[in-house]
Design a protein around this nucleic acid. Structure first.
Lengths: 143, 143
DNA sequence: ATAGATGCAAATGTTTTGCAGGAAA
DNA sequence: TTTCCTGCAAAACATTTGCATCTAT
């Protein structure tokens, strides 16, 4: 069984605050762990409902909040007003195609250290950042 | 009279599409050109209404859309769900204090060129980017 | 038995749209 | 006198909250 780490993290998070293991949380976890890349709240609701039609979207929203707090999910938002989630993995930022919506991850340690230096220059204690490049991906350039 | 460039850009934009010069647009322009830094839609509505109580917030939203299209304003959004506007000036990104909301601009050509290189590597034609550093500013660190 | 979870409906907050009346060209 | 603009109310949209009911512990 894969994603043992995520399952254990959730298990511990729930136990620590006396939260319950419910059918709904199990179902949402299953679906979320299958995601590769980024999934919006709405898509997540749809996929969960395909298997468990009774689950309300409110529950999905509330559950994803818990997953984020438990460290199983990271909330991301690009420029279309919807929240997306991804499974945490090594640090990265994103390239977003504004035509097809494709999201590609990139990593650049040079930029990372430049950020630290800049924050320091301005006296900021850096907590997090957001760095997105918007453009047309290769497939969307011909026309 | 300052901001001649902005006024002329708007004038031309309006003329080109046979749009009208109205009292409301004049009023919103006056207020907006006085802004230093970033102003949210809501703050803008308040400031405009302080002088012209009759102006509707719908008009402010619609007018700012026109200003953006005319190149007099740039829309920015940080992580609090509201749209902010700034007067265009040399390219820059932002440091945002998550405690007091202070927004500081920075510029880094090294990051800019790294972005171009990365976009190229992934076959993207870069249109724009978004780069924000979130943290605590100097004044918000003591506690 | 009881703290916690669910799902519906209603509320939220920001921004947009429909429309009838009003103003600029 | 036509075309565009305004302002109100209502809609949109993603997300959150209230609450009565249900369920895991």
């Amino acid at each position: 069984m894969s994603h043992e780490i995520e399952r254990m993290a959730l298990s511990r998070y729930l136990d620590d605050r006396h939260l319950k293991r419910t059918r709904q949380r199990e179902a949402i976890l299953e679906v979320f762990l299958e995601v590769t890349g980024h999934i919006s709240s709405e898509e997540l609701v749809q996929r969960v409902r395909a298997r468990h039609p009774h689950i309300g979207f409110t529950t999905v929203y509330r559950t994803m909040k818990i997953f984020c707090e438990a460290g199983l999910a990271i909330e991301r938002s690009f420029e279309d007003g919807v929240t997306r989630f991804e499974i945490p993995h090594e640090h990265h930022d994103h390239l977003v195609c504004v035509r097809c919506g494709r999201i590609v991850e990139f990593e650049c340690s040079m930029i990372e250290s430049a950020q630290d230096r800049i924050a320091g220059e301005y006296g900021f204690r850096l907590l997090r950042h957001r760095h997105e490049l918007y453009g047309h991906c290769r497939d969307c350039q011909e026309e």
